[in-house]
Design a protein around this nucleic acid. Structure first.
Length: 482
DNA sequence: ATGTAC
C-alpha cells in the first residue's frame, strides 16, 4: 500500500507536496485544485507521478500540475516541468505519445442564426472532406520527399501548397514551424506519416462548429476579434501515427541511454536523456519534426473546412471566410527563457496536456495580441463549453507561462465505455441542439462528458489563481469525431 | 493518443 500523500494549502486553489515528503524529491510538487476537483485528483496515480517528476535531476522550482491533471505515461497529463538547460534533461514521457496534439480556433464572418438551418449539411460536408478515425486516411497523400518538407517547414508547407493563407502562420504558436533535422526520424515513422497528412484521428480529437455564447472581457474579446453569436470552428488533433512512432522509437533509444549511463529512475516510464547527448538531440529533433507534422495537419484540415463552409453555405449568397484566431500546442518540450529568482535562465519546459500561456508583451506573441497576452484555447469535453482565455504576468511567474489544456479525464477510456452508451449520448446532445457526426460508437462512449471534469470548474480554478483572464465562452452547434 | 498486441 502506497503511503498517503500529504500536502499543504498554499493558496485558495493551490496545494503543495513539500520537498521532504519523499526521499529523492529535488523540488516541491504543486497542483491547482478546488474543493470539487481535489477528491478526483487524489483518486488516481497522478500525484504519485508528479512526485516522481519532482525527483528528476535539474528540475527548476517545482513539478507543476494544472487542474485538469490525470494519470499519463510517466508524467501526469496536465503536468508542467521545467529543467535547467545546462543539465539538459529532456523526456518523451513529459511530452506524451501525441506530440503537438493541439487546438486551433477559427472565427467566421457569420452569425449563429445564419448557420443554424444549414448545420447538418455543413457538418456532413466537413465530415466527408476531413478523414477521421484511426489508420490511414488523409486529405493529401504525400511522397517521402514532400513529407520531409513538412517535417522541416510545418504549417508553412501547407501555405506554400495553397492550403491556407500566409497570414495564418502569424497566428500559430511559433508560426507553425520548429527547427527540426528530419534525419533523426525513423523509416517507420516516415512510412506512417505519408498517409495521414490532413486527418483528424480519434480519441478526444474533434472538429467543432460553435458560436460565441458569452463574453467575459470586452476589451480582450475585441483584440482577439470575437463578438457574441459569431460562428467559430475548433480543430483539435495532433501528429497521428507519425508522432506516436517518434515517441515509441525514442522511448526505446532513451531506455538504452539510461542503462548505458547507469541512471536510477523513480519510474521506468520516466526515461530521459541530456539534450546535449546524441540520443537527447535525436529526440528533440524528431519531436520537433512531429510537432511540425501536427501544425501542418491542422492547417491542411483548416483548408478543407474553409472550402466546406464556402460550398455548403453558398445559399447565404455572401462571401464566407474563416480567420485563424490562434493555434496552440498541448504536448511539447520547448527551450524558453524565464526569470528565476530575478535572473533570466534558459530552460527546457515540458508541457504535457498543458498549454503555453504567455502574458502581455512577450516577444513570442503576435503583434496584434501583444498587449493582451497570448490567446489560450481550452476545449471542454464533448458537447460542453469551450473557453477562450488570455495569458497573464502571474502565469509567467508561477507556472513558467502555462495553463491547462481541457477538462481532464476522471475516468479511464475502458471505464467510460462500460458506463456510457453512445446512442443515449447522441440523443442527449441532440436535445441540447448539438448535432454529432461520429465514425465510431466506441469513441463516443469514451468521450462522454461524464468521463471528464467540469471544464467550468477547471477554468475557474486557474482564473481565480490569476493565471488566466477569461475572454469568451463557446457553445457547440455540431461536433465531428473519429 | 495509437495500424488500442512486434
Amino acid at each position: 500500500m502506497a503511503k498517503k500523500i500529504t500536502y499543504n494549502k498554499i493558496d485558495e486553489n493551490l496545494y503543495e507536496i513539500p520537498e521532504d515528503f519523499e526521499k529523492g524529491m529535488n523540488v516541491p510538487a504543486r497542483f491547482y485544485a478546488s474543493r470539487n476537483t481535489l477528491g478526483i485528483i487524489t483518486n488516481d496515480n497522478s500525484l504519485n507521478q508528479l512526485i516522481n517528476v519532482a525527483k528528476l535531476p535539474g528540475i527548476i522550482k517545482y513539478a507543476l500540475a494544472m487542474p485538469d491533471i490525470h494519470q499519463g505515461y510517466g508524467f501526469p497529463i496536465g503536468g508542467v516541468a521545467a529543467f535547467d538547460y545546462d543539465g539538459g534533461l529532456i523526456s518523451p514521457g513529459g511530452v506524451g505519445y501525441d506530440i503537438n496534439c493541439g487546438v486551433r480556433l477559427l472565427k467566421s464572418n457569420l452569425q449563429k442564426e445564419e448557420v443554424q438551418n444549414h448545420i447538418k449539411d455543413l457538418t456532413s460536408m466537413i465530415y466527408y472532406s476531413c478523414p477521421t478515425g484511426t489508420g490511414k486516411g488523409a486529405c493529401v497523400n504525400v511522397s517521402e520527399k514532400e513529407l520531409r518538407k513538412i517535417l522541416q517547414n510545418g504549417a508553412g508547407w501547407a501555405v506554400k501548397n495553397n492550403y491556407g493563407d500566409s497570414r495564418d502562420l502569424d497566428y500559430i504558436e511559433d508560426n507553425g514551424q520548429l527547427t527540426a533535422d528530419d534525419s533523426y526520424v525513423s523509416k517507420r515513422a516516415i512510412e506512417r506519416g505519408k498517409y495521414q497528412v490532413g486527418s483528424l484521428g480519434s480519441g478526444n480529437h474533434f472538429l467543432e462548429i460553435g458560436y460565441v455564447e458569452s463574453i467575459y472581457n470586452r476589451k480582450l474579446a475585441q483584440i482577439y476579434g470575437v463578438r457574441e453569436n459569431d460562428v467559430v470552428v475548433q480543430i483539435h488533433c495532433g501528429s497521428r501515427g507519425f508522432g506516436h512512432q517518434v515517441c515509441t522509437d525514442y522511448l526505446k533509444k532513451l531506455s538504452s541511454y539510461i542503462n548505458k549511463n547507469n541512471i536510477n529512475l523513480p519510474d521506468r516510464q520516466l526515461v530521459y536523456a541530456s539534450i546535449h547527448s546524441e540520443e537527447g538531440k535525436g529526440y528533440f529533433n524528431a519531436m520537433n519534426a512531429a510537432a511540425n507534422y501536427a501544425f501542418n495537419n491542422r492547417q491542411v484540415l483548416t483548408h478543407y473546412v474553409r472550402r466546406s463552409f464556402e460550398k455548403s453555405l453558398k445559399v447565404l449568397k455572401k462571401p464566407v471566410h474563416l480567420d485563424l484566431i490562434y493555434d496552440i500546442t498541448h504536448n511539447i518540450a520547448k527551450i524558453e527563457s524565464h526569470t528565476i529568482n530575478g535572473k533570466k535562465k534558459k530552460l527546457i519546459v515540458h508541457r504535457k496536456g498543458a498549454t503555453r500561456a504567455f502574458g502581455p508583451n512577450h516577444e513570442a506573441i503576435p503583434d496584434k495580441y501583444k498587449n493582451s497576452g497570448q490567446p489560450i484555447l481550452v476545449p471542454g469535453s464533448m458537447g460542453t463549453y469551450s473557453y477562450l482565455l488570455a495569458g497573464t504576468e502571474k502565469a509567467m511567474q508561477d507556472t513558467f507561462g502555462s495553463s491547462c489544456h481541457g477538462a481532464g479525464r476522471t475516468m479511464s477510456r475502458t471505464q467510460a465505455r462500460k458506463s456510457f452508451g453512445a446512442n443515449k449520448l447522441i440523443l442527449q446532445l441532440s436535445k441540447k441542439d448539438i448535432h454529432l457526426q461520429a465514425k465510431s460508437k466506441k469513441g463516443v462512449s469514451e468521450e462522454a462528458p461524464g468521463a471528464y471534469k467540469n471544464v467550468n470548474d477547471v477554468v475557474n480554478i486557474l482564473n481565480s489563481s490569476g493565471l488566466v483572464e477569461k475572454v469568451a465562452r463557446l457553445r457547440p452547434m455540431a461536433v465531428i469525431k473519429g
